[in-house]
C-alpha cells in the first residue's frame, strides 16, 4: 500500500500540531501606543514639569527680598508681553501646557503600570529586589502622593480656598499666612511632599535621559550626578522659604 503524498507538501498530515498563534506587532497605532513611545511621553512631559519647577522655585525665593518683590514677580507673570497680548495670556498658555503635561504624564504612567500588571498576572510568593527597589517603590506611589499634594497645594496657595488669607489676598500674604508657625502641620506636609518630589526626580530625571537615549557608559556617572544635584537644589530651594516663614525668619 502506498499513500499518495504529493511531492512538495510531503509532510504527512498526521498529528501536526495546530500552529501556535504568533503575536504580531499592531500594524498602526504608532509611536504613542508603544511602550517606548509612552516612556518618551513621560520623559518629555517630565522635562516640562521640571522646567516649571525650576522657575517656580526661583520665584519662591523672591520672598526673601520682601513681600513687594514677591508680589511684583507674581504680577509680572500675569502681565508678560502686555500690551501685545491681553492680561494673563502667557501665563494661561504656560498653565495649559503644564496641565497637558501633567495629564499626559499620568496617562502614560497609568497605562504603563497597567501594562506591567498584565505582564505579570501571577505574582511571586517571594520577591527580593536586587537593585534596592528604590525606583520600583518611589516612582508609582511617589507619583500618586505628589498628585494628591498638588491638589492641596493649588487649593491652598493658588486659589486660597484652604488658606487663612483667603482668595482675595496677595500671593505673598497667602504664602506667609499659609506657613504661619500656628499651621506647622501644613509646613510638615509640604516638607514631606517636596522631599517626595526630590526622590521622584532623582530617578525620574536620570530615567528620562535613559529613555531619550542619552545615557551611555561614559556619561552615566555625569547624568546620575546631574539628576541627583537637580533634585537636591530643587528640594532645598523649595524648602527654604516655607521653613524660613514657619521659623519666623521671614515675616
Amino acid at each position: 500500500m502506498t499513500a499518495t503524498i504529493e511531492r512538495g507538501s510531503a509532510t504527512a498530515p498526521v498529528n501536526t500540531p495546530a500552529s501556535k498563534k504568533t503575536p504580531t506587532p499592531k500594524k498602526q497605532g504608532g509611536f504613542l501606543t508603544s511602550s517606548n513611545g509612552k516612556k518618551v511621553v513621560m520623559a518629555v512631559t517630565g522635562a516640562v514639569m521640571v522646567s516649571f519647577l525650576v522657575l517656580h522655585m526661583l520665584g519662591n525665593l523672591k520672598i526673601f527680598f520682601g513681600r513687594e518683590s514677591f508680589n511684583e514677580y507674581a504680577h509680572w507673570l500675569r502681565t508678560l508681553l502686555e500690551p501685545f497680548v491681553p492680561y494673563r495670556t502667557v501665563l494661561t498658555i504656560l498653565e495649559i501646557g503644564l496641565v497637558v503635561s501633567v495629564v499626559l504624564h499620568m496617562w502614560a504612567a497609568i497605562s504603563l503600570s497597567r501594562r506591567a500588571g498584565k505582564a505579570r498576572p501571577v505574582k511571586y510568593v517571594a520577591k527580593k529586589s536586587q537593585a534596592n527597589g528604590y525606583a520600583t517603590h518611589i516612582m508609582r506611589w511617589g507619583g500618586v502622593t505628589i498628585a494628591l499634594f498638588v491638589i492641596w497645594h493649588l487649593l491652598d496657595l493658588t486659589f486660597g480656598v484652604v488658606n487663612p488669607a483667603g482668595y482675595n489676598s496677595s500671593p505673598a500674604d497667602r504664602m506667609i499666612d499659609g506657613f504661619d508657625p500656628s499651621r506647622w502641620w501644613v509646613t510638615l506636609v509640604y516638607v514631606v511632599a517636596v522631599v517626595m518630589v526630590g526622590l521622584h526626580l532623582r530617578h525620574g530625571v536620570w530615567s528620562a535621559f535613559q529613555t531619550l537615549g542619552w545615557a551611555n557608559k561614559d556619561r552615566n556617572k555625569a547624568l546620575r550626578a546631574t539628576a541627583g544635584l537637580l533634585s537636591i537644589v530643587l528640594v532645598l530651594g523649595f524648602l527654604v522659604p516655607p521653613l524660613a516663614i514657619t521659623f519666623g525668619v521671614v515675616k
Binding site: A10, T11, A12, V14, N15, P17
Partner: peptide, 11 residues
C-alpha cells in the same frame, strides 16, 4: 511538551 508522536516527511 504534549508527548504526541509526529511524522514529518521530506525529500
Amino acid at each position: 511538551v504534549t508527548g504526541e508522536i509526529e511524522r514529518h516527511l521530506a525529500d
